[in-house]
């Protein structure tokens, strides 16, 4: 199976509470919190689409979309 390739991260800013779980536990440090304490994608080129941010987000605020 080919490695999944990132299309984009969908972030729901209304649901994100800025807990930082996704930021700290991302194996490739793709994410960061912005000045409003909401998650933002800073290094999309490093994303390996492991989806751990999506699975561990307690608020359903981040979704990883991959290319078909």
């Amino acid at each position: 199976m080919a490695k999944p390739k990132l299309k984009q991260h969908h972030i729901n800013r209304d649901w994100c509470k800025g807990c930082g779980i996704c930021v700290e536990l991302c194996p490739k440090k793709v994410l960061a919190l912005d000045e409003q304490d909401k998650v933002t994608v800073v290094r999309p080129q490093d994303c390996i689409c492991c989806r751990l941010c999506e699975l561990r987000c307690p608020d359903f605020a981040i979704e990883v979309e991959t290319q078909e």
Binding site: C19, R56, P58, F60
Partner: peptide, 27 residues
């Protein structure tokens, strides 16, 4: 999709930032 099982009108939920219960709900 996962979100089809949720009552989205009640989200964001009332749990604190970083609460594990949201993760259990997701699981």
């Amino acid at each position: 999709a996962v979100k089809d099982y949720l009552r989205e009108r009640f989200l964001p939920h009332l749990w604190c930032p970083g609460c594990g219960h949201g993760e259990v709900l997701g699981g």
